[in-house]
């Protein structure tokens, strides 16, 4: 920097380090100075309008008294600017805007919604968002579920019933499906036999003698019939699966290649049992949201 060693016309701060290291004392650029003054003016206006200064146990609330919302008892309340009241106001405006559509959804029966394409489209598009935020983590975004863990909602087999009312009950209150394990009460041979019987119900090949023994266990010692019904079609008040159709929810029979693997899958369920929990949504979602989801899920899986 030796070439710029001295610029005699410009003032310096008067300090010198290392003999000749000096600091210029230039005036601030004008544009900068005026911007600075402008921020000061802005701050003062801001203090007057918005909550700003602490005073004792409270604070100045500012003069922007422009947030108006409706309180629980139906009165309107106007308050100083704050994000919580602003949110309340925005939510109320949004609710009013949606009210026209939601009113109909609330008032109409499921069948009526189905018969009106416009309402049906509205319900479905709203349901897609709700489903993605709340249900997809388990039932997957398409609703096809995860074999063994989360039931497929696209097929027309329902553990807990596929009518609108049943589905609504499922979503609102949640469900716990519990299939007990039998490894303590039945021998491996018996479990093998009863599994053969179960497989035969949906048209899978199985040893005829074993099926016969299995049938006796199913309605006798095993106690399977008490839950799955004597016809093994399942009972939707306890979510016991229908064992006579080709649709499986826990034992991955359809995904197994060989007959041995199919049997293994069924035996595993009978041996170890399975308890699965569908959470209740009524505390988290509104009645209207649950209704919309019910409509959506019902038509996903050819509802009853």
């Amino acid at each position: 920097m030796s070439s710029e060693k001295s610029k005699p016309t410009v003032q310096t701060t008067g300090h010198a380090w290392d003999g000749d290291l000096q600091e210029f004392n230039n005036p601030l650029p004008t544009w900068w100075l005026w911007t600075f003054y402008a921020t000061v003016v802005f701050a003062i206006i801001y203090w007057v309008l918005y909550p700003a200064w602490p005073v004792g146990g409270s604070y100045t609330k500012g003069m922007m008294n422009d947030i108006t919302y409706t309180t629980a008892d139906g009165k309107t309340k106007t308050t100083h600017w704050n994000t919580r009241a602003l949110l309340l106001k925005e939510m109320q405006i949004a609710r009013e805007e949606q009210a026209e559509y939601l009113k109909d959804i609330n008032a109409l029966s499921f069948e009526q919604i189905r018969s009106k394409p416009e309402k049906s489209a509205f319900a479905n598009s709203m349901a897609k968002v709700l489903f993605a935020d709340n249900c997809a983590a388990c039932h997957q975004s398409g609703g096809d579920g995860v074999m063994g863990r989360y039931p497929n909602l696209l097929d027309d087999a329902w553990l807990w019933g596929g009518s609108f009312d049943k589905i609504q009950e499922t979503i609102a209150n949640g469900r716990t499906g519990s299939m007990p394990g039998f490894k303590a009460s039945l021998s491996t041979k018996q479990i093998s036999d009863v599994s053969d019987y179960v497989l035969s119900l949906s048209g899978n090949e199985a040893d005829a003698a074993a099926v016969k023994r299995g049938q006796a266990i199913f309605s006798g010692q095993g106690g399977c019939a008490a839950c799955h019904g004597a016809d093994a079609k399942g009972q939707d008040f306890m979510g016991s699966a229908n064992l006579t159709d080709k649709i499986w929810t826990i034992a991955d029979v359809s995904g197994a290649e060989t007959a041995a693997a199919k049997k293994e899958a069924v035996m595993n369920v009978v041996k170890n049992g399975k308890t699965r929990v569908m959470p209740a949504w009524k505390g988290r979602l509104s009645a209207t949201e649950i209704k919309i989801l019910t409509y959506y899920v019902h038509q996903l899986g050819g509802g009853k």
Binding site: N134, A137, C138, Q140, V146, R149, P279
Partner: peptide
């Protein structure tokens, strides 16, 4: 809290992609 079942959390923490692809 309460949004998912315990089973889901366990599965999801061990292997998130087994439930959320």
């Amino acid at each position: 809290g309460g949004k998912y079942s315990n089973e889901w959390h366990v599965q999801h923490l061990i292997a998130p992609r087994s439930v959320v692809k």
